[in-house]
Nucleic acid binder design. Structure first.
Length: 201
DNA sequence: TGAGTGATTTACT
DNA sequence: GTAAATCACTCAG
């Protein structure tokens, strides 16, 4: 059930970003397990992608995690408040990553409600990368963890979406990346209410 | 050691 | 739909 690290060593980050839709992301914190179905992702294409932190081979303390082997989590703090969860893919020294932008609550819904202080019936509970990470209890301490461990992992529950229901659009919040901002590297499940901006194409 | 910065959220018109 | 907040971290000096 748990995806092996070899799954993440695929060097086609665009394929993995789509394939991760429908997979189930688990976290376990203080014996409390929560999980959500991944319904929205974005691909970040390593050193060639101006929107990536690793663009041009940039390598610092922060981006070092991106250069790890596939199957490592990369948690990045944005705007000083929001934790964004990424899956590092490909092989060592190839800093490709997939950003998890939204999940559909599946297990531990009551725990998520406490964390977010709102009902799981509200789409806002896990739509948008900052909210989804918070609902799952992800913070800086999850940075650089192997995804086959006991704190955070991803399972395949056999959920598949027909290709017609997978929408490809330009990424969000990366206008500064100029021409790379137009690339259709954001993927989401059509009609799912937990997707951050379901009606935007 | 400190100025600069942002893969967003939230509230508001 | 649009606009403004905001703060902890990053990176370079």
């Amino acid at each position: 059930m748990k995806l092996p690290l070899s799954y993440y060593s695929n060097q086609d980050v665009l394929f993995l970003a789509q394939d991760l839709l429908g997979k189930v992301l688990f976290t376990e914190i203080n014996d409390e397990v929560t999980a959500g179905i991944i319904v929205e992702t974005e691909a970040y294409f390593g050193v060639l992608d101006k929107a990536s932190h690793a663009y041009g081979g940039r390598r610092t303390n922060r981006t070092e995690t991106l250069y790890s082997h596939g199957g490592v989590s990369y948690v990045y703090l944005c705007y000083g408040i929001h934790h964004l969860f990424n899956v590092v893919t490909s092989v060592k020294d190839e800093p490709h990553a997939v950003l998890i932008r939204a999940v559909e609550p599946l297990i531990g819904k009551n725990i998520m409600e406490l964390r977010r202080n709102m009902s799981v019936d509200k789409a806002a509970i896990s739509s948008g990368p900052g909210s989804a990470a918070k609902a799952l209890g992800i913070d800086q301490s999850f940075n650089k963890k192997d995804l086959d461990g006991n704190e955070i992992w991803i399972e395949d529950h056999g959920i598949r979406y027909p290709s017609d229901d997978i929408i490809k659009v330009p990424r969000i919040g990366v206008a500064y990346a100029q021409e790379d901002a137009l690339l259709p590297w954001r993927f989401f499940v059509k009609g799912n209410k937990y997707v951050s901006k379901p009606n935007t194409i």
